[in-house]
Structures are given as structure tokens and as C-alpha cells.
């Protein structure tokens, strides 16, 4: 991997923003960090201490996507107009999730149209966030190969810029950069190790995962967790790998538009059939299903890795107190 020294991330960012819409995590003044379009090049780039509220998911798998329009006996495909854009400052966990969804939505034209127009600039984490356990989930803390075009690595006094794809190399044209010192890789590895140490052993995740796959969790334990699930859809909305959607018909000026909208497998109605039959009838079954999708061995085989990337957003967003750490702790208890 080609490595450069970088005096400031803003210089790279503003270079990239010249020909693309650029999004970066920005504080909203009310306590949240959100992906926002960069309108002012003087805006500083601040390294996030906690992950932004949303991952990059919505940039590709839009929360509301028009699929087609029906008008006068014809169905007209509606593929999004994809403008060149760059996501600047994506953490390793979120990039791993993008790679996971790239594979899941490999043949989805709407996803791929947005994805193909996007340049991904990763950011190694120099410190662990509050709920994160990316080191254990093999998705961080340093950005994984093949998941980004460019990688920023904040070291103690300076920045490293790593070129992680051909496209990443191309977009640097015209930007004056000095090669990084020879030991950059060791420094980067040491920092990643330090973050992994900060995250600790995450024993409850390991035990919970084992219990989940060892089929040692009885249905009562799941129902006890299910009682705490309000079916709010928060976890599935913020989860960077959740991908379920539902159809929505929208009347519009030119006929009826078929949209797809984010759905949640925690809703009772998710599998309910017109006949009344519901394979996922109880809240416990649905909670179990959600976690099986994230940590189940079958899914791991099918998609090449765990569905969970260890970002910890579900811990923060769950009003029932059954985010990943609490659930894994409860089901992993002997």
C-alpha cells in the first residue's frame, strides 16, 4: 500500500470536494454527530470520538427508494441519479459494513448506482468509542484492506494517508504529497493494538455468541428479552448491515410510485401473512432471529463474515436496554 504524510486532512478533503459532493461527520450543535454535506471548505474536520448516529448505509441502501412508476399501463423503472460523492472519515467498522452490503446488494441496481458513484475515505480509530468492539469482530479499529479507496490514519503528531485502491490513487492526482517514513506500518499497527486493548476482552460477546450457536438458550430467555423489545426499529435502522425493506405505494402526480422503505424484522407484522399465519409470532422469536442474523454460523458461512461489525450503535439506540452487550451478556450467562 502506498503511504504518504499529510499535513492536514482538510487539504485532502477540499481537494476531493472540488469535483464531488462531500459528506463528513459533523456536530449538529445539539450533541449529535451526523453525516452532513460539506458546504463550507473552511469547516474543520474533527475526528469523531463516537460513531455518527447513522452509518454510511443510507447513502447506498436509501431509507426510501423509488423503484418504479406505474403510469397509463406502463411500468417505468426509476434508477437514482447518482452524482459523484465522497464519504470522508468513515470508520473501519462502517467500511466493513459497506463491504458486507456491497456483497449482499451485488445485483441491486439502485444500491450499485449509488455505490459506484462514491469514493470512500476511511479513518483509522485512534481511540475506542464507548460501545465499540470492532477488534473482536474483525472489522477494525484500523481500516481493513479492500474496504476503502483512501485511508486516513491519525498518529500522535501527524497524519498518514494510505492509498487503498486504484481509484484512490487516481483521485490524488494534483495533490502534492510526501512519502511517509518507512516505519508507518509499525506505528499504525501499534495504534490499532492500543485501541483493541482499550476495548478489552469483550468476554460477554464471545460467550453470548457461543451460546447462540450452541443452541443452549431456551425460548423463555428469548421471550424475557422480547418483553423488553418495543419494536421501535431503532436497532435495525442504525445497524450498518441491516438490509430488510418493505414496499410502499405512493400516489404521485404522474401515477403511482412503488417505493421500498427500510423495514425491521423486530416488527410483529414483518412475517405476518394475509391468512393470519405468522412464523415470527412472538417478540422473543423475533429478537432471537435478529441476533442469529448477526452472529449465527449459517449466516457467517453464507456472507463470509459475521453480520455484526461491532459498532455498538444498538447499545446506544435501544430503549429496552437490549443492545448487543446486554443481550449477549444475558444469553451467555450459564
Amino acid at each position: 500500500m502506498q503511504a504518504y504524510e499529510l499535513d492536514s486532512p482538510e487539504r485532502l478533503r477540499n481537494h476531493l470536494a472540488r469535483e464531488r459532493l462531500l459528506y463528513q461527520p459533523q456536530a449538529d450543535g445539539q450533541g449529535a454527530l451526523r453525516w452532513q454535506r460539506l458546504d463550507d471548505p473552511a469547516q474543520p474536520f474533527v475526528v469523531p470520538a463516537e460513531p455518527p448516529v447513522f452509518s454510511a448505509k443510507a447513502f447506498f441502501f436509501a431509507e426510501r427508494e423509488a423503484l418504479f412508476r406505474y403510469e397509463n399501463g406502463r411500468f417505468i423503472a426509476l434508477v437514482p441519479e447518482a452524482r459523484p460523492q465522497v464519504l470522508f472519515g468513515l470508520a473501519a467498522c462502517d467500511l466493513t459494513a459497506v463491504a458486507y452490503q456491497d456483497r449482499f446488494f451485488a445485483v441491486d441496481p439502485h444500491y450499485q448506482a449509488r455505490r459506484a458513484a462514491t469514493l470512500l475515505v476511511g479513518l483509522d480509530c485512534a481511540h475506542s468509542c464507548r460501545h465499540g468492539f470492532c477488534a473482536m469482530m474483525d472489522s477494525g479499529p484500523e481500516v481493513r484492506a479492500q474496504t476503502a479507496d483512501l485511508i486516513l490514519c491519525p498518529l500522535a503528531q501527524r497524519w498518514l494517508l494510505l492509498v487503498a485502491s486504484e481509484r484512490g490513487a487516481e483521485v490524488l492526482a494534483g495533490l502534492a504529497l510526501q512519502p511517509a517514513p518507512a516505519d508507518w506500518a509499525q506505528q499504525r499497527d501499534a495504534q490499532a493494538l492500543q485501541v483493541a486493548v482499550e476495548q478489552g476482552e469483550q468476554e460477554e460477546i464471545a460467550l453470548g455468541c457461543a451460546a447462540l450457536n450452541g443452541e443452549t438458550v431456551d425460548s423463555q430467555a428469548w421471550e424475557a428479552l422480547g418483553l423488553r423489545c418495543l419494536g421501535c426499529s431503532g436497532c435495525t435502522s442504525v445497524c450498518p448491515t441491516c438490509s430488510c425493506f418493505a414496499p410502499l405505494q405512493q400516489p404521485s402526480a404522474g401515477g403511482v410510485v412503488q417505493e421500498r422503505v427500510w423495514d425491521s424484522c423486530l416488527y410483529q407484522g414483518f412475517q405476518q401473512e394475509a391468512s393470519g399465519h405468522n412464523p415470527g409470532a412472538t417478540p422473543g422469536q423475533r429478537v432471537q432471529r435478529f441476533w442469529y442474523h448477526k452472529f449465527g454460523e449459517d449466516f457467517r458461512q453464507r456472507f463470509g463474515r459475521d453480520g455484526c461489525v461491532g459498532c455498538g450503535r444498538c447499545d446506544a439506540v435501544c430503549p429496552g436496554g437490549i443492545g448487543v452487550h446486554q443481550v449477549m451478556k444475558r444469553i451467555g450467562e450459564p
Binding site: 445539539q30 450533541g31 449529535a32 451526523r34 448516529v53 447513522f54 443510507a58 426510501r64 446506544a316 439506540v317
Partner: peptide
């Protein structure tokens, strides 16, 4: 098109 919660 949607909402995000408000940490803090």
C-alpha cells in the same frame, strides 16, 4: 425521508 435520534 427519515429521522435520526438525538444523542445528548
Amino acid at each position: 425521508v427519515g429521522v435520526e435520534p438525538q444523542p445528548g
